[in-house]
């Protein structure tokens, strides 16, 4: 991890002014600069063009750039706000802001809803939920019978699909997630509370000082 000068930063593809990003997010300028060090490392891990490609995102998440994972794809697509197949620095910071401990729960609930609304229909449908459970089982060491999967999905729909129309809408998801806060556990990254404290090496290399 090398030192990054401000001249280098301005010339780098995908870079965005930390002052603007800090104004739009919960992060301070110093925290945005610290996040840039992490971003730079991930975005130069394979293709070295200053943008995060899907293989680089997978490599950072799994230490394996070829590991296919439905949820990694979903998160990448949600971070890729411009939908151009790469994550630039602004997208990285704005997306991570959702995971900041101080970000309102309502924003986390909406992000999780979009994550699970696989086909972007505005609903989490039964088939989507079953697909995600099967993907989780396939991608982990958990083994469950088809009957057990059906039972879990049915039981979850009984609890969450209050109007019983076979799909979970945003309001139903909001009520369900509010009653089951454990569902949002992954939506908060405590490290982000003060990333310059949690990662002092970022301070040294980014020049953050306050």
């Amino acid at each position: 991890m090398g030192c990054v000068s401000s001249k280098q930063l301005k010339r780098t593809l995908g870079y965005e002014d930390p002052n603007i990003l800090a104004k739009e997010t919960t992060f301070t300028v110093n925290e945005v600069e610290a996040l840039y060090v992490l971003y730079r490392k991930i975005s130069h891990s394979i293709i070295k063009d200053g943008l995060i490609h899907k293989e680089e995102f997978q490599l950072a998440l799994f230490r394996n750039m070829n590991k296919k994972n439905l949820f990694a794809d979903r998160i990448f697509d949600l971070f890729d706000l411009k939908r151009n197949g790469v994550i630039d620095f602004g997208e990285f910071v704005r997306s991570l802001n959702i995971f900041h401990p101080d970000t309102p729960t309502a924003e986390k609930i909406t992000f999780a809803f979009r994550l699970y609304d696989l086909r972007g229909t505005g609903y989490i449908e039964r088939e989507e939920l079953k697909e995600m459970v099967l993907a989780l089982l396939n991608e982990s060491d958990l083994l469950l019978s088809d009957e057990a999967v059906e039972q879990i999905v049915d039981q979850t729909f009984k609890q969450a699909d209050v109007n019983n129309d076979g799909k979970i809408d945003h309001d139903e998801w909001k009520a369900f997630a509010s009653k089951n806060p454990a569902l949002l556990k992954n939506m908060t990254l405590p490290y982000l509370k003060d990333i310059t404290m949690a990662f002092p090496s970022f301070v040294l290399v980014s020049g953050a000082s306050d």
Partner: peptide
């Protein structure tokens, strides 16, 4: 918890990809 005692979303949240802490250890 046993998987069968969890609701489907709890189960899904066990996925490694949904733990973005891993990004910080990149």
């Amino acid at each position: 918890d046993q998987p069968t005692s969890m609701n489907a979303f709890e189960l899904i949240s066990l996925n490694q990809a949904l733990n973005l802490d891993n990004l910080f250890e990149a």
